[in-house]
Simulated assay, not measured.
Amino acid sequence: MKHIIISILTALLVVVGVSDVKAEQSKRLGPWEVHYNAFNSTLLRPEMAKQYQLSRSETLATLNISVLDATAAGKPAQQVEISGYVMNPLSQQQTLEFNEVIEGDAIYYLAQTRFSNLETLRFFITIKQGNQTQELRFHKEFWSN
């Protein structure tokens, strides 16, 4: 199962032609292994953006998150409630609107947000499933192409 998620994320990076961007990152949060990646939307090929109903712009970032059950053999993908916001260096917040994508056994969540050139954004993502709630926090610098 994990290989399916990693394959999808790798395929996404290959399809968008990202050679200078790090592959997805992951964090263990409670019972989950959360994989995440944020990149400039211009790295998406037009046909891929259309397929996932994403916009392409020099000042638009795309966020991709998948949640795996780290306690189970095969680490199956998890369907979760996901919400969050992004904060710029001036502490201005923008709510993230996630779209769930299910492709076979893979489940992942996509969102987009605006940025200014050479701006570091801080992401605050809340992941819920039943009584379990975890928060993913990370930051990333973006630049216009």
Rank of each mutant, 00 (worst) to 15 (best):
residue 52 Y to R: 08
residue 36 Y to I: 02
residue 38 A to I: 01
residue 122 R to V: 01
residue 134 Q to R: 15
residue 48 M to K: 08
residue 19 S to H: 03
residue 15 V to H: 03
residue 145 N to V: 05
residue 29 L to C: 11
residue 112 Q to T: 05
residue 36 Y to G: 02
residue 124 F to C: 05
residue 92 Q to D: 15
residue 94 Q to W: 04
residue 131 N to Y: 10
residue 68 L to N: 06
residue 106 A to V: 14
residue 52 Y to D: 05
residue 132 Q to S: 08
residue 20 D to Y: 09
residue 39 F to S: 01
residue 78 Q to F: 02
residue 24 E to A: 12
residue 77 A to R: 01
residue 60 L to G: 03
residue 113 T to M: 02
residue 53 Q to I: 08
residue 73 A to D: 13
residue 49 A to G: 06
residue 15 V to P: 00
residue 61 A to W: 04
residue 20 D to N: 15
residue 9 L to N: 06
residue 137 R to Y: 09
residue 23 A to Q: 08
residue 131 N to M: 11
residue 75 K to S: 12
residue 116 S to L: 13
residue 48 M to L: 15
residue 102 I to T: 15
residue 103 E to T: 12
residue 114 R to L: 10
residue 136 L to R: 09
residue 109 Y to M: 10
residue 98 F to D: 09
residue 56 R to N: 02
residue 57 S to P: 06
residue 108 Y to K: 10
residue 58 E to L: 01
residue 6 I to N: 08
residue 11 A to M: 09
residue 22 K to N: 07
residue 103 E to H: 03
residue 121 L to I: 03
residue 118 L to Y: 12
residue 10 T to R: 13
residue 137 R to G: 01
residue 129 Q to I: 00
residue 135 E to T: 15
residue 95 T to I: 14
residue 76 P to W: 09
residue 43 L to D: 01
residue 26 S to M: 06
residue 1 M to T: 08
residue 49 A to P: 06
residue 139 H to A: 10
residue 25 Q to R: 14
residue 107 I to P: 03
residue 21 V to N: 01
residue 41 S to F: 03
residue 86 V to Q: 01
residue 27 K to G: 00
residue 44 L to G: 03
residue 2 K to I: 03
residue 120 T to V: 04
residue 70 A to N: 15
residue 76 P to S: 07
residue 87 M to L: 07
residue 31 P to L: 04
residue 52 Y to F: 15
residue 36 Y to V: 05
residue 7 S to L: 03
residue 117 N to I: 02
residue 141 E to R: 07
